[in-house]
Amino acid sequence: GGGSGGQPEALSLEEILRLYNQPINEEQAWAVCYQCCASLRARRGETPTARLGAAAAQLRVWRDGAVTLEQDGPDRPPPPAADKSGRLHCTEMEVIESLGIIIYKALDYGLKENEERELSPPLEQLIDYMTNATETDGSRDEGYDALDEGVEDDNDDKEEVEAIHSYKDVMKLCAAHLPTRSEAPNHYQAVCRALFAETMELYTFLAKIK
């Protein structure tokens, strides 16, 4: 039981799932995915130094609707510094795969092992693309720096994405889910902001009852 004043600025996806004791809905999945890729894009220079796990505790939803993906917490021993190829950090596609798994598990939360949730085909396809990302093409692992810096230019956002190679591709697919793609930043931020606010409201309510 915390004090009355200091509300947290962020909640982990794990905390959100536990509090509601139910999976996230599809709109929240699209939103978390978009927002997380937006923050990962903004921080591309700071690639995680070790392979990410795929735990909901690593994904944080912030009060302002931002979503971040952190490395494992301090309670987990750090994995070996380099993977089998000797790389010292995750590739963009490995991070995307982890994110896809985290989001799928959040949609699957509470279901029995022999049960499967029926997802809408576009969302299932998004997660399928994300979680197969490392198998489809590893050729662009490290070469992103000079390749797509012009992404704020929206001209190419109308093309269809048939495979995922980057955070930007994930964001394009999420934007294509909306009636108006240009609404994506505001819409998805609002969905995540609401997810945080509603969870905090529930948290406060439950704390009062206790």
């Binding site: 809905n25 599809e26 799928y104 049960e115 949730r117 399928d128």
Partner: peptide, 23 residues
């Protein structure tokens, strides 16, 4: 505790859940 907002089906061996659980 309203009704579920999604449909559940038996897990399929070639479905996305099976694929992801193998990761």
């Amino acid at each position: 505790k309203g009704k579920s907002l999604y449909n559940i089906r038996p897990k399929h061996d070639s479905g996305i859940k099976a694929k992801i659980s193998m990761k």
